[in-house]
Amino acid sequence: MSTHVNLVNVRPVPGGVRVPSVTITVRNVAYTMPVLAYQVSGSTVVFPGLEGDEPNAIRVRFDRWRVARDCDPWRELPLDFPDMGTAVKAAMEFESTPGVSWDSCDEDLGAWLVGYVERHRARAGGDR
């Protein structure tokens, strides 16, 4: 084993701990379970995609990651990233961008994401 990543579902917060959860439906049964997340900094986390995998399973997708704020209210950047490293870099870039934060309106978050995608396409040599 060359790399070990600890995905946790308990994070210390002032006054106690926080256990974020997600609800996934499989065969018409809703399961609420802890989100396995990697803390980037502060309340910003990245986590693998979770989905109901019919007929009897919940699939953890390590090929689809999200960036989120792990506090009330839980808030995600509405874009899937192809791996954990890319999601962490996006989270760090988001946090270091002046004028945008987790408290920004949906339109500002969307504009940041459009700019992020355009910058990374240009770095990669064009459309992908």
Rank of each mutant, 00 (worst) to 15 (best):
G85Y: 01
T25G: 05
M33P: 00
G115L: 04
A37C: 12
G115P: 00
K89Y: 00
P48F: 10
D72Y: 02
V5G: 00
R66Y: 09
R18A: 13
V67Y: 07
T86S: 15
G85Q: 10
D106Y: 05
T25E: 14
V60R: 06
I58D: 07
R119A: 11
T86C: 06
W74Y: 15
V26M: 07
L113N: 05
W112K: 13
D63G: 08
G125P: 06
R61I: 08
H4W: 03
A124Q: 12
A111Y: 02
R66F: 12
T44A: 11
A37Q: 13
V19E: 10
W102L: 09
S104Y: 10
T44K: 05
S41I: 11
T3N: 09
D72H: 09
G16M: 07
E118V: 14
G85S: 12
W74E: 06
L50K: 09
H120M: 02
C105K: 14
L109H: 08
H120E: 08
R66T: 11
V117P: 03
L50S: 09
P78T: 09
E93T: 15
P98D: 11
R61P: 02
S101L: 02
I24M: 04
Y116H: 14
P12T: 15
R11N: 06
F47N: 11
S21K: 10
M33D: 02
R119F: 01
E54I: 12
S41D: 10
M33H: 07
F94V: 13
R61C: 02
V26W: 02
D106N: 06
P20C: 02
P20D: 14
A90F: 03
K89V: 11
T97R: 08
Y116R: 03
L36Q: 13
R128E: 12
V19L: 06
S2Y: 00
C71F: 04
M92S: 10
A90H: 01
G15W: 01
W65F: 15
D127G: 03
G16L: 10
G42P: 04
D127A: 13
R27S: 12
E95Q: 13
V35W: 01
G52H: 01
G49Q: 04
V22E: 10
V13Q: 12
V35A: 02
R61H: 11
A57L: 10
P78M: 04
P34G: 12
R61Y: 00
P55Y: 05
P82D: 13
S96C: 00
V10N: 03
R69A: 08
V22N: 00
P20M: 07
P73N: 11
A57I: 03
E51K: 15
G115Q: 10
A37T: 05
V17T: 14
V40S: 09
M92T: 14
P14N: 15
R66L: 11
G125S: 11
A87R: 13
L113D: 05
F62A: 08
G110P: 01
D53V: 02
F62K: 11
D63A: 13
P55R: 12
D53T: 12
D103W: 01
L36W: 01
E51N: 03
T25C: 01
V22P: 00
F62I: 15
G52P: 02
E54L: 13
F62Y: 15
R75D: 11
Y38T: 14
